[in-house]
Design a binder for these strands. Structure first.
Lengths: 335, 335
DNA sequence: GGAGCGCATGTTACCGCTAACAAACGAGGC
DNA sequence: GCCTCGTTTGTTAGCGGTAACATGCGCTCC
């Protein structure tokens, strides 16, 4: 920067100003600095800038996994919103564990991010302590804080009601006249559990809940797992006439297995998935599922964060916001 | 750090040493510093550390897209290898464009990463200039530099031969006795083109190439696109008896569409995909495809990079390395 | 015609840590 | 008993920018 300053015949401070806020220097100086800067191939060091200005222009983004398309879409939304504003996402993978999350968060915080985006609300007490102590904005995604909850520590959430979405599926299957409605779930994170809770309540409200038809396993969801669990369900409860699979990859696996076993869908078995992942509209038959606004959640979380990072007065942290982006039941042909 | 130093009764420098290289201080001092550090909740600022030591402990990772599972797997491999070593990946999305790549690389370089991982070898002259000027290690992935190529600028590549993989599929379809073998490709990046080139050569070697059976479109691949392009192919060339789809999502879409149209696979039409994405083994019938070592490429690239970053003498950049991790033709039932 | 003001630029003092060198100290060798 | 050497700790001087304040200058205004 000193070299550029010398070449342009100004002070280093003026170079810094000319490049960051061109409107604060005279047109003539701006041009000279830009020319010198380009000619010398000057790239300002963000590290030094960060140290001097106490802004790193980075945002910590913690997601459970890279292999689940849901969080990739979330990340894509965050990334495409932050990037144009000059923010660099620092991706951290928590592996669905609150303890790992705390560990990852600690290492991310050492990088002094200007904001934090977390997945879910299921954090360790240590994580909550950390968050309480932060002076940077924090957004929780994919879930909504219950009204009044976390009153000791105002939180900003962007997501949708997993419970309501699960309820909607249960109610839909019941409304289709199904009597023996089963559940298949993997990857039992808090959000999956809430979906299951909603589904269960819907069936209870319809008077058709049978706990024996619930099959919940901790394994990561996959097409293979869906196929396997479908077989297991039909082996133990051959009279099952409808199934809610808590993620579309499970549902796709189940559909494949039905095709293989010659089970007509939806005539003999109705199938509903969750998330409306890529391809769900193209399965045979097209899959009924719940479209979730994952990318939009990422975009909105990033927007809120940018707003919070812009005004450095932490007043915005006072008013907890709760952005409900909803969900849509996509009724297709498997039900 | 000054506070910790005071609390432990030592100098700041000793605190720094005690925390970074515990073996260089006495046992007693180490314990006192650790205790004080913990008690005060001290978290060293990586920004300041980076500025003083000229190591940011970050690695720029540029991939074309977040919505293509291939690059997510690559990223996952990189991430899981870098993280335990204390490196933080900085993810940049290039959108498959060399110009965008150059732009993203420039902004990433402002963060002073200690290493760079790129996708492919298709860079702008400006990018090559940038890379030549760097004193940090750079790895190119998903492709292999031809022997002797880029002799002006030694490159390290980790990948497999896209050409050979395409050739293997073409040869396989020909060996199955198919006569009218078509091609469907989307997302025409250089790697896709190489696969197509290999496939084409295989068919020529078998005396069965017909350019009219090639359908190449620039759109991003998807299940929907596969279904659509299958129909288009059959409409114009109903005698097609085998198809290579350059990515598994296309192939899955084609399989779905075949099921819908009542076209028996593989009896009337053989189908081969590429990448062995999740679920390929579970389609109906299970999909013949090429398993590509995406995660392994990420792991190996990160390993090489770590080695290069460890010895700060840039001698390792002199010897271009070329790590071929191969591919596997997964013959299943669609062929 | 001089006070007062606004704008453009310069000066100073850090941001929080670490490389490099200096100093202090005890142990071993002759 | 003195010198050399290795080990541990301290001192100094930045790393490359930017916040905050200071300065200089041309104008307007009464």
């Amino acid at each position: 920067m000193a070299d550029v300053a010398a070449a342009a015949g100004v002070s280093a401070m003026t170079v810094s100003r000319a490049l960051r806020r061109p409107d604060t220097v005279s047109e003539e100086v701006r041009a000279r600095v830009e020319e010198a800067s380009r000619r010398l191939g000057f790239v300002p060091s963000r590290v030094a800038s960060a140290l001097a200005s106490a802004r790193t222009m980075t945002v910590a983004v913690l997601i459970p996994s890279l292999t689940n398309a849901v969080f990739i879409d979330l990340l894509a939304g965050v990334q495409e919103t932050l990037s144009p504003q000059g923010y660099q996402p620092l991706v951290g993978i928590t592996g669905y564990g609150p303890e790992a999350e705390e560990r990852v968060l600690r290492t991310q915080l050492a990088h002094d991010p200007d904001g934090v985006i977390l997945t879910g609300l299921d954090h360790t007490p240590g994580t909550w302590d950390l968050l309480r102590g932060l002076t940077i904005p924090v957004i929780h995604t994919m879930d909504l804080a219950a009204e009044g909850e976390h009153s000791d520590c105002p939180v900003q959430t962007v997501g949708f009601s997993q419970y309501d979405a699960g309820y909607a599926v249960g109610a839909h299957l019941a409304a289709r006249g199904r009597r023996r409605i089963g559940l298949i779930a993997g990857q039992l994170d808090p959000r999956t559990r809430q979906r299951c809770d909603g589904w269960r309540q819907a069936l209870r409200d319809a008077g058709r809940h049978d706990a024996a038809l619930e099959l919940m396993v901790p394994d990561a969801t996959s097409v293979a797992l869906g196929a396997e669990l479908l077989e297991r369900t039909l082996a133990t409860h051959p009279d099952t006439d409808a199934l809610f699979l808590c993620n579309d990859d499970l549902a796709q696996g189940a559909l494949f297995q039905c095709a293989r076993l010659g089970i007509p869908v939806p005539e003999r078995l109705a199938v509903a998935g969750f998330n409306d992942l890529a391809g769900a509209a193209w399965t045979v038959p097209p899959l009924t599922t719940v479209a979730t606004p994952r990318r939009a959640i990422g975009v909105e979380a990033a927007r809120l964060l940018i707003a919070g990072m812009a005004d450095r007065t932490p007043k915005s942290r006072e008013n907890p916001r709760r952005v409900d982006l909803g969900f849509r039941l996509m009724v297709r042909e498997t039900t």
